[in-house]
Write a protein that binds this DNA or RNA. Structure first.
Lengths: 352, 352
DNA sequence: GTGAAAGCGCTAACAT
DNA sequence: ATGTTAGCGCTTTCAC
């Protein structure tokens, strides 16, 4: 109806053949500068838009989009991201794009490097990275750049890098502010006496701490609004579930009755049992991320609030975005897309 | 790679020609029962999946999806829905689907009927309805059904109808529960003495009250948890902005100092000025929907919480869904899709 | 009822 | 450097 302009029209108008038009369309060279110019002009004047279907039909090669993300076990945070990638498979299949999800070991940078090399060898049309190891990632994206392979970040990005196509994630610092504000909502300064921040022991170096920005936001808010609060940190070991209870027992017996507890990562479920067996009147507990075990804690009333976002929307959107770029060279509206943070309580978590 | 099976393969296997295969594919009759059967068997055995691009290329007709929704003025609730429809235009353009948004007057059922007739005449491939007038809508969908035109509901649906392809919206009753729970969070029963429910005057009958389910949820929660609360309703007239202040003045002077105020529709902005000029210590105000004027009230501290959802996601998703159905006959996973309700406060509304 | 054949708009290999 | 041509997989006349 609207689009009746084909490459034939363009060719005629430019006084060349389809072949030439196609060449400049995909700038695969072999074209005299002046005919290229004529073609471009004709395209412009006619408002020519290539027909995606014809194009995809004729060039019967699928493009491959690689999604590179950490391995995970059932119910972990990364699972949601993974689901988003899976959901996108069908959506872009119609554009002849294959989605190839590659996982690397969360605690092993050499595994990451290994997978990166495999990815490069598979000559993907584009890559989506959920990065954990800054140095190794830097290396990888440099190679992608050299090979003219567009890539995006999801969840985290590298500050030092400026060649990425787009980034989608949560505003981490602000999520820390939000957490602090929700924790202390409607509280008078003197009420907020003791605050416990539970962290997990990190065994490996070389891995960026995903929660450091968030912690900064949290701390800044607390310092500003509740300078008198006694903030203490306790570290639990995720690999020693049995030991967590005693760690916390020791910590809280030294600290006293604490009514403000947060965990700034997705692992609040680790202290679920402890909280359940040590109820405190008027206590507020806030955690992050809508993984199943955390959601269950909302229902049980062990956690009051989860700050989350639709992680699977992020990853799905990323693939869609990259697909659009690959097929029609459409760049995303905003290079850095920050997603809205959701406040989940027992009452509104149901359809999340 | 995976899909190497074409209709030619199917034709060969079934011992017929491409033409016949195509006929059974789109069941346009003119096929002997037994050859049809053979073809179906061949398709099954070969796992044949038609190539969307080839199909769309060959049949160079765009399909039209009509989105039927209320007219609105800048900044109204419906604007978000509209934006979602607009966003979907590009997404499905690649599938040769044109999105045609038709607006009807919010307060005029005859306008609705008129637009419906136009829609029917344009012979759309599918329709998405945001209904306001139950009776007239019932009539319309009956005609759609007669014409084998698939349709979906967004935002609201008709209880009596059972022929729709899918529905996407908010769980209204539950949103009322949530509202009540947030309003009274951490409150002792005796604290919640007086509650004001602000409504808007409805001038027209024949129009379903979109908030009645929500109000039921709200009331049920209050009755159960705060049976002693004095709940009163006041009606303001949206068409007489100037009169709102005095209406409220009168109401509240007869009621006393009220610390719990809700409005169960998107029009909380109507009472924005009154609230700002009549501050009450410890007051909680809750409204619905993330339209700009409401969001501003969060920022100003006039409203504490908005219960919202990404309306534009709903409408966008609906189009996508219908498109998938039209192109590849893929039915939505859930016929009724309830969207998550978001809790918006001053702190997390920014990227919404 | 069914098959043959002519495209749809574009790509890519092959001539020139 | 450029034109020509044979498809890609499916739809749609049009004969038979």
């Amino acid at each position: 109806m609207s689009e009746k302009v084909t490459i034939i029209d363009v060719a005629r108008r430019a006084g060349v053949s389809k072949g030439t038009v196609d060449r400049v369309l995909h700038n695969r060279g072999e074209v005299a500068a002046k005919s290229a110019e004529k073609v471009r002009k004709a395209i412009e004047e006619l408002g020519f838009k290539p027909n995606v279907h014809a194009s995809l039909l004729a060039s019967r090669k699928d493009q491959i989009v690689v999604c590179l993300m950490p391995e995970f076990t059932e119910g972990e945070y990364w699972g949601n991201l993974y689901n988003g990638f899976m959901e996108s498979v069908d959506m872009v299949a119609a554009l002849s794009i294959r989605v190839d999800i590659r996982l690397y070991a969360q605690y092993d940078s050499s595994s990451f490097v290994h997978v990166c090399n495999e990815v490069l060898e598979s000559r993907p049309a584009g890559v989506i990275i959920v990065p954990l190891f800054p140095l190794e990632t830097m290396d990888f994206v440099r190679q992608l750049k050299n090979n003219d392979i567009p890539y995006m970040y999801v969840d985290h990005k590298l500050q030092e890098d400026d060649s990425y196509l787009a980034y989608i994630g949560m505003p981490l610092y602000k999520s820390g502010l939000l957490c602090a504000a929700l924790l202390t909502e409607r509280c008078r300064p003197e009420e907020v006496d003791k605050v416990a921040v539970v962290r997990i022991k990190r065994d490996l170096a070389g891995k960026s701490d995903p929660t450091s920005d968030r912690r900064a936001g949290f701390m800044d808010y607390m310092r500003e609004h509740f300078p008198g609060a006694d903030l203490r940190t306790v570290q639990v070991n995720p690999h020693d579930r049995g030991g967590i209870d005693s760690t916390l027992d020791k910590f809280f017996s030294g600290f006293g009755e604490v009514r403000y507890i947060v965990m700034l990562n997705s692992r609040i479920n680790l202290i679920s049992d402890y909280l359940a067996s040590h109820p405190v009147e008027g206590r507020r507990v806030i955690g992050f991320d809508s993984i199943p075990s955390n959601l269950r804690m909302l229902d049980r009333g062990v956690v009051d609030i989860l700050i989350a976002q639709h992680t699977e929307v992020q990853s799905r959107h990323a693939v869609q975005c990259l697909a659009d770029y690959l097929v029609m060279k459409k760049c995303p509206a905003e290079r850095d897309t920050y997603m809205h943070m959701d406040i989940l309580t027992r009452l509104n978590q149901e359809y999340y």
